[in-house]
Amino acid sequence: MNIFRLTGDLSHLAAIIILLLKIWKSRSCAGISGKSQVLFALVFTTRYLDLLTSFISLYNTTMKVIYIGCSYATVYLIYMKLKATYDGNHDTFRVEFLIVPVGGLAFLVNHDFSPLEILWTFSIYLESVAILPQLFMISKTGEAETITTHYLFFLGLYRALYLINWIWRFYFEGFFDMIAIVAGVVQTILYCDFFYLYVTKVLKGKKLSLPA
């Protein structure tokens, strides 16, 4: 455990909690892509199946349980409890275009051809693109609530910190996981455009809106 990974995990946790609290407090999930949230729930479910087979640390287990729990709570709020506020008309990204190629790739490029390992690989690849429905929704409506941009910022920050963590681990532990690194780089790149808008607009007190 190094400081980059810890702050990365905490940043990820912050993102998840910010989103859940925003939806819960405002009793509305307007502007949030339910599809991205279902993909993240799928990511956590397929990645953390090792909760049932191996114990790494209390920290590891606790964080996994919190991530899974919060992601399902978010999906529940969007599709069940607060369904009336869900903006499905703007959430039109075709997720099969992500799931099918990502599933195929997980079968072809993995560390070990076993069910758990293929599901882990699937979750890594899927996480790298799971935010696309949300970014697509923002590009479609041309704007995002400021709190939603904070959520995206912490989610992107988590990825950037994990990249530094991997550089650190490579130098000090000789550890590297090519699948996680390549997917992590792809995922971080997807946030770059958003980071630019966040810094130039949201941090200066303006609402995030895109030119028509």
């Binding site: 990820h12 191996s54 640390s57 070990d112 390992e117």
Partner: peptide, 10 residues
């Protein structure tokens, strides 16, 4: 199966 594959990150 390769038992050495372990994922300690989140």
């Amino acid at each position: 199966a390769d038992e050495s594959v372990s994922h300690d990150e989140l």
